[in-house]
Simulated assay, not measured.
Amino acid sequence: MVPAMEHPERLTIASRPSTMALFQAGQVRDRLAHWYPETDVTILPVSTEGDRWAGRLADLGGKGDLHQGRRAGPPGVQPR
């Protein structure tokens, strides 16, 4: 059960435009619409340069340290 709380009038979920991502975002939208029927929940497909890149990911550059960032967690939060 979801605790009672104020709800926004509108909520937009940004999602990659792939079939799987839109399906997952749709499930989240449907759950939120069930919990907060007064809230207008929409999905905004968002495409980035990485989504459109047809070459090797290594050629895009960067440090390749996504794994390290995920392990460390958000800034200011110490991992357990």
Results as ranks from 00 to 15, higher is better:
Ala21Thr: 11
Arg16Trp: 06
Pro3Val: 10
Ala72Leu: 14
Gly76His: 09
Leu11Glu: 05
Trp35Phe: 11
His7Tyr: 14
Gln78Cys: 13
Glu6Gln: 15
His34Ala: 08
Val46Tyr: 05
Thr39Val: 07
His34Cys: 08
Arg29Ala: 05
Ile13Glu: 00
Lys63Leu: 15
Arg29Gln: 08
Pro74Glu: 13
Gly26Asp: 09
Leu57Ala: 03
Arg29Met: 09
His67Gln: 10
Leu44Tyr: 01
Leu11Asn: 00
Leu32Gln: 07
Arg10Pro: 02
Ala54Asn: 11
Ala58Lys: 06
Gly26Ile: 03
Pro79Ala: 07
Thr12Glu: 10
Pro75Ser: 04
Gly73Thr: 03
Trp35Arg: 11
Pro3Ile: 07
Gln68Tyr: 08
Arg31Thr: 10
Ala72Trp: 01
Ile13Asn: 09
Leu32Phe: 01
Glu9Val: 11
Ala25Ser: 04
Ser15Tyr: 06
Gly64Asn: 02
Pro17Asn: 07
Gly26Thr: 01
Asp59Ala: 08
Leu60Val: 01
Arg10Met: 04
Arg80Ala: 12
Ser15Arg: 01
Pro75Tyr: 07
Leu66His: 08
Pro17Ser: 08
Tyr36Thr: 11
Gln68Glu: 11
Gly55Tyr: 03
Arg10Gly: 02
Pro45Gly: 04
Thr42His: 10
Arg80His: 11
Gly55Val: 05
Thr19Asp: 11
Ala58Pro: 02
Ala4Ser: 10
Pro74Tyr: 13
Ile43Tyr: 00
Leu60Ser: 08
Ala33Glu: 03
Val77Trp: 09
Pro45His: 11
Thr12Gln: 14
Val28Leu: 07
Asp30Phe: 09
Gln78Pro: 08
Ser18Leu: 11
Arg10Thr: 04
Thr39Ser: 08
Pro8Met: 06
Gln27Ser: 06
Gln68Val: 15
Pro37Gly: 01
Pro74Gln: 15
Trp35Gly: 03
His67Ser: 12
His34Glu: 12
Arg71Cys: 11
Val2Thr: 13
His34Trp: 13
Met20Val: 13
Asp40Pro: 00
Pro37Ile: 08
Glu49Phe: 02
Arg52Ala: 01
Asp59Tyr: 01
Pro74Thr: 14
Leu44Asp: 02
Gly73Tyr: 06
Tyr36Val: 10
Glu6Pro: 07
Gly61Ser: 05
Leu32Cys: 07
Val46Arg: 03
Glu6His: 12
Thr19Gln: 13
Gly69His: 08
Arg10Cys: 05
Ile13Val: 03
Gly62Leu: 02
Gly69Gln: 12
Arg29Glu: 01
Ala58Ser: 14
Pro74Ser: 15
Val41Glu: 00
Asp30Trp: 01
Ala14Tyr: 04
Arg80Thr: 09
Ala25Leu: 02
Ala25Gln: 00
Gln78Val: 13
Met5Gln: 15
Pro45Thr: 06
Arg80Cys: 09
Trp35Tyr: 09
Leu57Met: 08
Gln78Phe: 11
Leu11Val: 00
Leu22Gly: 02
Arg70Glu: 12
Arg10Trp: 03
Pro74Ile: 13
Gly73Ile: 06
Leu57Pro: 13
Ser47Trp: 04
Gly50His: 00
Gly61Thr: 04
Arg29His: 04
